[in-house]
Design a binder for these strands. Structure first.
Lengths: 359, 359
DNA sequence: AATCAATAAGAGACCGGTCTCTTTTAGAAG
DNA sequence: CTTCTAAAAGAGACCGGTCTCTTATTGATT
């Protein structure tokens, strides 16, 4: 098939107007569904539009109206089921309200996040939903606000930024999860998270710039200390940024003589790799080691034994934040809201007393 | 509805031009990075832009250039890990080439797919990637071509449509999977798929409008018949469209006296529900029943026993189709390509001889 | 029949860029 | 010191819609 020489000149309102024998303005009124037009003229224009197979150019429309009908979403890692599910919630809410979603991945890198935000603003999205990867540098997020577009935060709060936010109580839920392990008798509990820092070495909370992670670690440490555990921060592992890294980390973690008797994993991707390493090393759950993970991923309910999980309302998280944003897009003026959705723990079979207890 | 007063009047090239004391055209040349400008003027304009915090309006830019830098993707079901992974492949390829992705979900419903395509064309995406949910009515896909935008198909081929396509050999791989079961001695093999039809009753291939599914069923039946299995189509189950439906279906399937001794599941979501029902009913894998599923999902490698899977190169599927599309977007003129990526089967522990064999 | 308001249709500016065409400027050649 | 040419800057049309403002038409009122 040869390239059709005429570059498929698309049909415009003017074309329709000419065929329908009316002015451009009138045709636009019919086609755009605004203003007042008589029934007969409307019918004529519609007929002409159908005959010509007219398709509105949403770009031109957005340009004059100033709104695009698009919500920009910047998310940490699309591959993570946590985010897929949240995005699903966002998409559903958006669609229900007649909005579309354009998705960008930050890979949890601040420069990528920054670039994504700039791009989406350039595309003139009506509003943005972001899971900020860092709380240090949020100038690009302030820019959004300055550009007149509403912003809403998902999963991670920024105290300094007064915008709609939907999160869970990470500190509280981490405390509850840790307490389950402590109550089972564990005193060597490892916390494994994706956040990276120089040398994967945890020093203090100040070096953790992701709010949810910081809160979780805070809660984890609090419960450990309350239980009289000595220097629990020794068992915090940073840098589980990819399956490969996680595997290495888990291997090191589970090989030493000082091996933890329980592990709390910060997301299901991390837990999955840890689980595989445990099995590969012949460690029995929960006899030899206990495991709890954040996120009720598919696989956690079909292993033997099934895994105890922190079941965040991920879909609802996405849905709520989108709804909040959309209400603002529709012009609703109200003080910013900080929603904290309730979270439960699903106790399954991956927690038991530490091996030493049985001696 | 009242028009909100222009709040944040955004900075335009004209504003920059005025401050830099040059013409709009010159400022545009600098800011748009085209044409020829002297170094001193360029510096002036850049300084003015920086001072005013100028951000280009991509919408206006797209409008005149005719290209938006966006690839539209219409996918069957975002929640399905198969598609998430494919979308990830698409996104990565797109980003590498400087394109963005706007994602729409068809829910495998033809009207939704049609609406999504119309919307994306309206947004003037540069090209589209679609997983067509039906081969019956593809007029909307022809429309894409007519609108002058390239289209590429993912995972499902349409013989009637001469466009770039990336798939796997579904018939062949279904045959290989079925043969594994047949070779193990099975003669009552069920095939469970999401495709819906009136009454969930399979009659003949003509009623299956999703090409990949049709090919798989075709291959499945061929191997069954070659093995002398009587009326294998009796064991084809349609309508596993949601976890709930799948559970019901699986319950019925596994309760009858004519219970199959092996199941081939069309995707990992279906297999997961079947697995749960099996376990709940106390059926041991592979002693009591064998299971193979399409898609090497997370969970399939951590169950006891792990599940034998058809490992489609999902990420590569997405990446390749995006690359094909992008090459065309960059103006490369060549005959349409129909890529068929090689697929393997990962044999794990979920296939054994049928229970009857052991008596 | 004349006046007036309400309604329907038309004319044209505008959004914020790109891009073609024209004018000005500067440097090289004669 | 012209003359010519190439480079640099300016002017303004254009993309395809929306929207304001103006004009024409209609029916109701007195």
């Amino acid at each position: 098939m040869k390239r059709t020489a005429p570059k498929t000149q698309s049909i415009t309102v003017s074309d329709v107007a000419r065929v329908a024998n009316v002015s451009k303005a009138t045709a636009a009124r019919v086609l755009g569904g605004y203003g007042v037009v008589s029934d007969t003229i409307r019918a004529n224009v519609m007929a002409a539009a159908k005959a010509l197979d007219y398709r509105p150019n949403e770009l031109a429309r957005s340009m004059t109206t100033g709104r695009s009908g698009i919500i920009g979403v910047v998310v940490g890692d699309i591959e993570n089921p946590f985010f897929s599910l949240a995005v699903r919630g966002i998409s559903d809410a958006a669609r229900a309200a007649g909005f579309n979603v354009i998705l960008a991945n930050s890979g949890e890198r601040i420069e990528a996040e920054r670039a994504a935000v700039r791009l989406l603003i350039g595309k003139r999205v009506d509003g943005l939903i972001v899971t900020p990867s860092e709380s240090r540098d949020i100038s690009h997020l302030r820019d959004i606000h300055r550009s007149g577009r509403p912003l809403a935060l998902l999963d991670r709060a920024l105290p300094d930024l007064d915008v709609d936010t939907v999160t869970v109580d990470d500190r509280d839920i981490a405390m509850r999860a840790t307490r389950i392990l402590v109550d089972a008798g564990h005193s060597k509990i490892a916390y494994v998270t994706a956040v990276d820092a120089e040398g994967n070495e945890y020093r203090d909370l100040g070096q953790i710039y992701t709010s949810s992670v910081r809160e979780r670690i805070d809660g984890f440490l609090k419960v450990c200390r309350d239980a009289g555990i000595d220097r629990p921060e020794r068992h915090i592992c940073l840098g589980a940024t990819s399956p490969d890294e996680t595997r290495k980390l888990a291997d090191k973690l589970l090989s030493g003589p000082d091996r933890p008797t329980a592990i709390l994993a910060s997301d299901s991707l991390i837990a999955l790799e840890i689980f595989k390493v445990m099995r590969q090393r012949g460690l029995r759950i929960p006899q030899d080691i206990s495991l709890i993970t954040f996120h009720d991923a598919d696989w956690t309910s079909v292993t033997t034994p099934p895994i105890t999980v922190v079941d965040q309302p991920v879909y609802a998280l996405g849905k709520s934040v989108a709804e909040l944003l959309i209400r603002r897009l529709k012009g609703e003026a109200r003080p910013t809201e900080r929603l904290i959705l309730p979270t439960t723990i699903i106790e399954r079979g991956s927690v038991g007393p530490p091996a030493a207890y049985k001696l």
